[in-house]
Computed example of a mutant assay.
Amino acid sequence: MSSQNAVTGLVYSDNIALSWKPVDYEPEQTHLAMVNASNESFLRAVSAVGDGLNTKDDSDAPPGIQQDIARLDLKLNLVLDLVSALVYHELDIPPVSAVQVSAEQVSWQGEGPPAGARIFLELYIQRGLPKPLCCYGEVVTTPEEQAAGRNTVRFVGLTGAARVWLEKLIFRHHRREVAFRRAHVGD
Rank of each mutant, 00 (worst) to 15 (best):
M1L: 10
N5F: 08
A6T: 10
T8Q: 11
G9D: 08
S13Q: 14
P22H: 02
P22T: 11
D24G: 15
D24K: 03
Y25C: 11
E28M: 05
Q29C: 01
V35P: 01
N39Y: 07
E40Q: 12
S41F: 09
S41H: 13
L43M: 06
V46E: 08
S47C: 05
V49G: 03
G50S: 05
D51P: 00
D51Q: 07
L53G: 04
N54V: 09
T55I: 11
K56Q: 15
D60E: 15
D60R: 15
A61F: 14
P62S: 13
G64I: 14
G64Y: 11
I65F: 14
D68N: 11
D68V: 00
A70P: 06
K75P: 00
V79M: 13
L80V: 09
V87H: 09
V87N: 09
E90S: 13
D92Y: 04
V101D: 06
A103M: 06
A103P: 00
Q105P: 07
G116I: 01
Y124M: 04
Q126S: 08
P130G: 03
L133Y: 10
C134Q: 15
G137P: 06
G137F: 07
E138N: 15
T142K: 02
E145Q: 04
G149K: 05
V156D: 15
V156C: 14
V164N: 10
L166Y: 04
E167L: 03
K168N: 05
V178Y: 05
A179I: 05
R182K: 13
A183C: 02
